[in-house]
């Protein structure tokens, strides 16, 4: 092999290695930000099962559905979640926590504004949940034809892309 051919081949291999390396180094932060901007990786749990997530033990106590009075095509779903913190500082990681209903295609509905006396997921940073369990209540209004096939999703910005998902089997 002539020296020139050898030098050309070496340059080509160096280029093939360096190009993806440079792209990765310059864009990895953007990739990470894009990945953490959405909750896509579900940690699946069954309703009766307690699941560990973000320093809390989560248990889905109830997910009740009833058609709304005014519009039968809409159904109100009420979810009750019992949670207990495993560490005092865990509550701080719950900032901007949100609860959704999710169907099999990943389509999500957010909870209605909470009623007086109810504790919502977003209030957790201000509540001490280490002493005794806290009951979270979330109410949703979703299309009636979707009510049979929804799961409950708990999304915490600090944990993304991971999120907790309770599969619910209607009895």
């Amino acid at each position: 092999m002539s020296n020139e051919l050898f030098a050309r081949r070496r340059s080509l291999i160096t280029f093939a290695v360096l190009l993806p390396a440079v792209i990765w180094m310059s864009a990895r932060e953007d990739f990470a930000i894009a990945r953490q901007s959405r909750a896509t990786n579900a940690i699946d749990a069954m309703p009766a099962q307690a699941a560990q997530f973000s320093g809390f033990n989560w248990r889905l106590i109830d997910l009740k559905a009833a058609p709304t009075e005014r519009t039968p095509e809409a159904t109100q779903v009420e979810a009750r979640l019992q949670i207990i913190a495993t560490a005092r500082e865990a509550a701080q990681s719950m900032r901007n926590c949100r609860v959704y209903l999710e169907d099999s295609t990943g389509q999500r509905w957010s909870a209605q504004p909470s009623r007086r006396g109810d504790i919502s997921c977003a209030q957790l940073p201000d509540i001490d949940a280490t002493e005794k369990p806290v009951m979270l209540v979330a109410r949703f209004v979703i299309p009636t034809y979707r009510a049979e096939y929804v799961s409950l999703a708990v999304v915490i910005p600090k944990q993304r892309p991971r999120y907790l998902r309770f599969h619910f089997q209607r009895s």
Binding site: R108, S110, V141, I142, P143, R146
Partner: peptide, 11 residues
Amino acid sequence: GLLGRELQPEM
């Protein structure tokens, strides 16, 4: 009004 109101899918 619609400004600042959260919309839901299929609703």
